[in-house]
């Protein structure tokens, strides 16, 4: 299972904050496809400008391999402080 989280503007734009993916999934590309199967509005997620990806709370990118139990977060550039 992969736990997927959305934060900031992305959560508002896609109207979703969390998705659990039960199917086997090893790449971010596969994850995009599986997310779109469950929630069609996520079909444009991968085209989001300045999309940031964290895997298990560490910054990652589209080439990082996924493992069962991973937590994947999608969010825009940060604006704290």
């Amino acid at each position: 299972m992969i736990n997927v989280l959305f934060f900031g503007k992305l959560r508002d734009d896609f109207k979703i904050d969390q998705v659990k993916i039960e199917s086997p999934c090893q790449t971010i590309d596969q994850l995009f496809d599986l997310l779109t199967k469950q929630h069609t509005q996520l079909s444009t997620l991968k085209d989001t400008h300045s999309l940031l990806i964290a895997i298990n709370q560490d910054m990652a990118d589209e080439t990082t391999t996924l493992n069962p139990g991973d937590e994947v977060a999608f969010f825009p550039p940060v604006t704290g402080g």
């Binding site: 934060f7 900031g8 503007k9 508002d12 300045s50 964290a54 977060a73 969010f75 825009p76 550039p77 940060v78 604006t79 704290g80 402080g81």
Partner: peptide, 18 residues
């Protein structure tokens, strides 16, 4: 650090750009 600001000003709400 993953914080995001959402502002409301002049009665409009928007997410702040980095």
């Amino acid at each position: 650090a993953p914080f995001w600001k959402q502002e409301t000003k002049n009665n409009q709400t928007f997410w702040v750009d980095a």
